[in-house]
Simulated assay, not measured.
Amino acid sequence: MTNMLLAVVVGLTAGAALRPAVVALAIPAGRPADCPACSPRPAGPTVLRLLSSGCENCRGQLLDAPWWLPPAATAAAFAAVAAGDATGWYAAAQYWIAFLGTALLLVDSAVQRLPDALTAPAAVGTLVLLAGAAAEGEPGSLPRAVAVAVAAGVLFTAFALGSMGLGDAKLAVSLGALLGWRSWQAAWAGLVLAFTLGALFAVFLLLVQRRSRKSTLALGPALIIGTLAVLATGP
């Protein structure tokens, strides 16, 4: 219980720190990075705008979402990791994905984009932390993690030739490595659960929001939630 409460508190803090990055990356294509209400608009991005939650002139919010959403989502992700009772470097890898994965989930849900600024450090950090776990002799397999990561990247790159984007393939590398470290069964469970959640979400949008079958849907959230759900079942 103590570990769970600590994870939630740390998740809330990390999520609050994460919000400026989510705001900066969740700007729809074709929309200026500055607040449309400002006149004249600032010319080009600035460090202040990237580090703040809104426009540097009027502080209007650039992301149409409640301020508490990133902290709450990150806290939930950290709680899922804590529920799995993982320890050591492998736990650090899980929290790394929970942290960056929350940002990716929110950005992809908002603008259907998985930016390299998040997917690249997610993949590199995961592999480095798993290498640390292997060096310490923690239960798991680094070769299997690498094999699943490569297989997931190739599989989702092939999917990208259809309706999916390359962002999903880049995200699948880190998620596949994390699940592959545990077992082949975990990797398969994460994949099946992700596609099941994606299908259910697509049906929900078709029925509730009256989307068409040709509408583009974000798969990133389903991949992240599916992975965290599998991780929550144990170390």
Rank of each mutant, 00 (worst) to 15 (best):
P235I: 01
P121Y: 06
A229G: 09
Q94T: 01
L106S: 07
G180E: 02
A160K: 09
G125P: 11
A29Q: 11
S52L: 02
F156H: 14
G137F: 00
F195D: 11
L114W: 03
A133L: 00
L142H: 02
L130E: 03
V107H: 08
V10L: 15
A123W: 08
G125W: 01
D64H: 15
A117W: 04
F159D: 03
L127T: 04
A122P: 05
T74S: 12
P66R: 14
V150F: 14
G220Q: 10
G234V: 09
A24K: 04
A151C: 10
A43I: 12
L178P: 00
A26C: 08
L69T: 09
A177E: 12
W181T: 03
C35L: 10
L105D: 07
L155N: 01
A103M: 10
P45F: 00
A98F: 04
P115D: 05
S183K: 02
F201P: 00
M164G: 01
A158P: 04
V107D: 11
D116Y: 01
L12S: 08
L104H: 07
R211P: 02
A134H: 06
A26P: 07
L129T: 05
V23H: 05
D34A: 15
W68R: 01
C55T: 05
V208I: 13
A72I: 08
I27T: 15
L62S: 11
D34C: 15
